[in-house]
């Protein structure tokens, strides 16, 4: 591998966390493979973002075109195809975000590259990269090789690659003219649709803070909401909470409610009845906080705290806000 490319992801003029995580993964890969690292930034009016990336990446390559903003997978694909045409061997990494899910598979075909999605770790053997990903309801770790591929695209599991800012690099920002020319696309961005607050989609949330009967008869729902907000997740619940009209039905996780496949599931005051736990699919990091040390939820959780929620939750919220800076 001669080169490692990191595709920056941004929305509404803000770099997304996936960018930094991809950069962290790219750095490590570049080091292990002895390859050059380049960050690719595609968009329009991206100077501020380019500057931010230039502090962390050795090279930043920018393509500006109004058709690249907001994110347009087909425009991205065409652009990348053009600018990577003569490169290689290379590996391109990017977040496994919902937006980039529209890009990576098609891109791999367009670039004639091998693809591994949702990788959580890489290793290098005989100078070749291998990727760890999960299969079978995310329950089995799988190591995949890319055979003799000279071009590789990999998407990265959110949260799997921790980024530490160095701030040391002062990269040159290289601007490349947009190769899009007069291309029109068969897909058109219409707009963002904000789900109403009541429309929170528990089913597709990656981070879920879920509350159960153990939160008491007159719970402080705001306390839980602010924790969910601090964690960047959504608030869900078990059936008793819906019964008490504390949250609407579509927040209810369970075999009879919504099935969820989060990455992280924080169960607060949830006893762990099968009807509830049955609705949690995949293998999320399951953390339980409950007063009752014998609550069955502790049997399925990886981490647990036996304590009063009213003490733990505010402390946890504060600490998380602190960690986020």
């Amino acid at each position: 591998m001669k080169e490692i490319f990191v595709l920056a992801e941004h929305r509404k003029q803000q770099l997304r966390d996936t960018t930094w995580e991809a950069l962290a993964a790219g750095r490590k890969l570049a080091e292990d493979l002895g390859a050059e690292l380049t960050c690719l930034l595609l968009g329009s009016n991206v100077d501020a973002m380019a500057d931010a990336l230039a502090k962390e990446a050795p090279r930043v390559l920018v393509v500006e075109d109004p058709r690249l903003e907001p994110f347009h997978p087909d425009a991205c694909m065409q652009t990348l195809k053009a600018i990577l045409a003569d490169r290689g061997p290379f590996m391109l990494v990017m977040g496994n975000s919902n937006a980039l899910l529209d890009l990576a598979p098609g891109l791999s075909v367009t670039l004639d590259a091998a693809l591994a999605t949702d990788c959580f770790k890489f290793e290098v053997r005989d100078g070749k990269p291998l990727a760890w990903r999960q299969m079978y309801s995310y329950k089995v770790n799988t190591l995949v090789s890319f055979k003799d591929a000279e071009r590789i695209v990999a998407t990265l599991r959110g949260g799997a690659f921790a980024f530490t800012p160095s701030g040391a690099a002062v990269a040159t920002v290289e601007k490349v003219a947009s190769p899009l020319g007069g291309t029109t696309f068969r897909r058109r961005f219409v707009g963002y649709v904000e789900a109403e607050k009541g429309d929170v989609d528990v089913a597709s949330a990656d981070i879920i803070v879920s509350v159960g009967r153990g939160i008491g008869d007159e719970p402080d729902m705001e306390m839980f909401e602010s924790l969910a907000e601090a964690m960047g997740g959504v608030l869900a619940c078990s059936r008793p909470i819906v019964d008490k009209n504390l949250l609407p039905k579509y927040h209810q996780v369970g075999t009879s409610g919504v099935e969820v496949k989060p990455k992280v599931y924080l169960a607060l005051g949830i006893s762990g009845a099968f009807q509830h736990v049955g609705g949690i699919k995949g293998s999320p990091l399951l953390v339980a906080v409950n007063k009752d040390p014998r609550a069955p939820i502790f049997r399925v959780a990886q981490y647990g705290i036996v304590a009063d929620l009213n003490q733990v939750v505010p402390a946890l919220t504060d600490k998380i806000k602190q960690l986020k800076g």
Binding site: G158, G159, A162, M231, V289, K319
Partner: peptide
């Protein structure tokens, strides 16, 4: 401690 674990395991999103 839990906050640290969550951060480490990607339990703190945007």
């Amino acid at each position: 401690k839990l906050a640290e674990i969550l951060k480490e395991k990607g339990g703190i999103g945007s």
